[in-house]
Structures are given as structure tokens and as C-alpha cells.
Simulated scan of single mutants.
Amino acid sequence: MGLVTVDGMIAGGWSRVLRAQSVEITVELTEEPTPGSGPRSRPRLRGTGSSAGSSRPWSVERWARAPSADGWRRGRRSRQTPRMTRIAVEGQATRTHPAERGTVNLHVAFSGTLRNDVVEQVARTHTILVEQVKAHVSTGAAERWDADSVHSYVYDDRVKNSQTGGKQRIRRFRASARLSVTFRDFEVLSTWLADVMDADGVEVDRITWNLTDETRKALLAEARIEAAEETAVRAQSYADALGLGPVAPVAIFEAGLRGGGNGGGGHTPMYAMRAGMMSDGDGAQVELQPRDIDADVTLSADYEAGAPAEG
């Protein structure tokens, strides 16, 4: 069978289809072809197929019309791409470290029928606590503190009238101010809390345990490496089970960054910091011993693996 050419139009220009035996090549032209026009030498078709019915693949050299007036230029050689299998896996890692900082959150509050009295009580108690906190910061036992100014509001309270037996409305005022302190020295923290919880009008809301920024970053760096290594090990295990060759990484995603609903939700943080926190309510039931903090990392990754190498 000889070379057959078929001319046609494609988007943005002209094309010429060359057919010979079991091979078909489409060439994009820069100008409209004329009957009988073509390259000075026909496209060379090389391969092991010898007839139109051959199912063996051809290796083809493509030709295309060059912008120059007198010729054709050779394009890149097309080859069959080996089929690859994609493997998606997840990796997790955790690093644990004792708490290094304890942050106390408390507030001072008083209420009564006279606004000036309750505001003065809150301001006086709050000032005493702030002075104590500043002293702990100056000695290095505490790292930093933060306080809000005094806020007050009015509300109506209904109480039983002892004479009439009914309910009567009483106008009352409430004032409060918050204070937050971060301690380095947990023994000083424990002693200070024992004094604070005995003071009138002071309520401890919670204690949160945390790490320094330097420790947290170091733990997360180690956890990221371990999580990434786990994805590689898991991907290769799947490839081995399927009789495939070595895996190669294609993409890696921190939690929440993979599209399409895989590899974690959009609101999942890349890492989580977990630690014990003190209970709300009665100070006598507060657990002051800090718990260890976990730094967790979750990753998802895509790998590709092909057939094992021969020999």
C-alpha cells in the first residue's frame, strides 16, 4: 500500500493526514495545501509492522510544514508512554513534649445596687493582682501578662418581697475586669493561684498549657519528616503488593490543601497542639499539674509506579 494524503481544515488552519499501511499521521500546515503538494521526501515510517493488519507498534518520525518557503522540518519523535499507576496515601506523626508555659485566665467581678461601689471594688482588686503579676514578670517567673479595663453594666433583679410575698424589681450593677498571665515557673504559678482563689471577687476561668515557639517549630519539623517518610513506605508497600516497580513522588499535601474532598477537610489544621487544661468552676477542683503536649502532623501524598524493570 502506497502513501495516501487527505487534506482538511482544523481550528486555526489546515491539516494533512498521511496514511501508510497501519500508520496515520496528522500534520498541521501553515498555509492551504494545493493538490499534489507535499514534502520533498515523503515522511519516513519506521517500525516492525509490515502490513495493514499488523498489531505491533510503529516508531514514527513526524514531519510538519516549516514557515520557510522551501521545505519541511522534522518534529519530535513520538513514543508510547508507559502506563503508570497512581497511589494516594496518608502519613501521620506525633511528637510529645512536656508543657513549658502555663497561661492563667481569670476575672474580677462584683455586683451591687450602687454602681460606683462595684466599680471601685473591681478596680481595687484588679490593681492588686496586676501589681503582683508585674512582680512575677520582673523576676522571670512569668513571661507576659495582659489585662482589660473595668467594664460595668446594669440589670434588673427580681427578689421576693417579705411583706407582700410578691416579686419586686431591683436595679443592680455589675462590674468586671479580666487578667491573663503566662508563667514559666509552674511552682510560682501554683503558689500565686492559691492566694488568688482566696480573694473575694476573683474567679479563675482556665489554665492552658503550651510550648515555646522554638520547641513547637522543632517538634513539627521532626513530625513532618516522619509523616513524609511514612507516605513513601506505605506507597511502596502497595506497589509491591500490586507487582509494580519503585514509586516516585508526584505531589504532597498538608492537611486541608488537597482538592476534591480527599486528604482532609478544608478546615483541618496542618498540625494540632493538644494539652490538658484546667477545669472551669471551683478553684479547689482545679488540676494544676501540666500534661504533656502532642504536636501532630498529617500529610497526604500521591505517588506513581510503573511495571518493574526487566532483568
Rank of each mutant, 00 (worst) to 15 (best):
T30A: 08
T30M: 08
E31H: 15
T34F: 09
G36D: 05
G36E: 09
G38H: 12
G38I: 15
P39D: 06
R40F: 11
L45Q: 01
S51W: 03
A52W: 01
A52V: 13
G53C: 00
S54N: 14
S55W: 03
R56D: 10
P57W: 05
P57M: 06
S59V: 14
V60Q: 05
E61W: 06
E61C: 06
E61V: 14
R62I: 13
R62A: 07
A64Q: 10
R65S: 05
S68G: 14
R77Y: 03
R77H: 02
S78Y: 10
Q80F: 07
P82C: 02
R83H: 07
M84G: 00
T85N: 07
R86P: 01
A88C: 04
Q92W: 01
T94K: 05
T94S: 06
T94M: 07
T96K: 08
T96Y: 01
A99G: 15
G102M: 14
N105P: 00
H107W: 10
H107T: 03
A109W: 01
F110E: 03
S111H: 08
S111W: 05
L114K: 08
D117C: 02
V118R: 02
V118K: 02
V119M: 09
E120C: 00
R124Y: 10
T125A: 11
H126E: 02
I128A: 12
I128Q: 10
I128F: 07
V130L: 15
E131F: 02
Q132R: 15
A135W: 10
H136N: 10
V137A: 03
A142G: 07
E143C: 02
E143F: 02
R144M: 09
W145F: 15
A147R: 15
